[in-house]
Design a protein around this nucleic acid. Sequence first.
DNA 1: TATTGTTATACTCTATAACTATA
DNA 2: TATAGTTATAGAGTATAACAATA
Lengths: 168, 168
Amino acid sequence: MQETELAEVRRYGMMPNHGLQFGDMRHNTGFLLRLAWLQVHQSLEQNGQPHGLTAAEYTILHVIAQTPGVRQGHLAQALYIKPAAMTRVIRNFEDLELVERHVPDGDRRTVRLTIKPKGQQSLDQERAHFSGALHTVGTPISAEEQADLNHLLRRFCGLNHEGAPTDV
Amino acid sequence: MQETELAEVRRYGMMPNHGLQFGDMRHNTGFLLRLAWLQVHQSLEQNGQPHGLTAAEYTILHVIAQTPGVRQGHLAQALYIKPAAMTRVIRNFEDLELVERHVPDGDRRTVRLTIKPKGQQSLDQERAHFSGALHTVGTPISAEEQADLNHLLRRFCGLNHEGAPTDV
DNA sequence: TATTGTTATACTCTATAACTATA
DNA sequence: TATAGTTATAGAGTATAACAATA
């Protein structure tokens, strides 16, 4: 009789890989980024409330809160969300009274966004969920390694031109 | 008159961030992983052939090629794809004669997968696309930094128990 | 004529649960 | 009774192009 998946996890303390070979993909940054993100996504999914914000929604709402009056198009560009998709997210936020849309007189083609009290409340409620400790599948990485990882990811994403010079 | 997006990119040599503030998210590994992956995804999309393999499909096919006889379920588990979704991908591969499904006599509930000549051909055709140089949005990272990033991502994903001991 | 955002549409992906076959 | 994979279905997300309003 074969050993069950659960028994394997108990025995080896991690996900068994069943002899799978990744070959060159082990050195493919894009592949590793995708796999790591899917891992985080699955972890969030398992621990999340049924009808809370999605990861994309939380991020969008967070940046609006941090950048009052941000332009909708700039938000879409920075977060790699297509304008058409952003329109739906923002309209949904508006329906839920999480954000306010404002069309300025200076350029009436643009839309500027600000957070509303209910939006801030949603952020506060979901913060613990999205800031929670990360579950790594392999050996848990140390705080220093995670800081290194974050630093390299910020460089990769071009996010190192913001914040204090002492920023890790 | 406002400076165009393109002019800004030319002037500053990178994507303008329009004063967007990411705040705490700059230290949220999950957020950074998602953003970095979306960046790679967008880059692949812009350079890709209209009807080639998706990133997920390329990875699945690659691992099947590297691990002849791999079980369909193990593949799904390792790549964070739900069994129901994997069934459709594999059926599609079978229709295109890229892989062969084999139900072994030992356990007739399972499905074992091997690559076929057309599958190997597809991999060869797409290799350059998915292994291509990565476009970073910020300062391009050095080869050493990318190696560090890959190493940390492998640790994060629990992928460091495979391969040669001299593996970077 | 270019830009911003919206609409419409089709398509892909995803999640969930029920189901079949096998162990 | 448990497991592997399949099917069915609804929902979420994505890509594309056409469009209206504004600059």
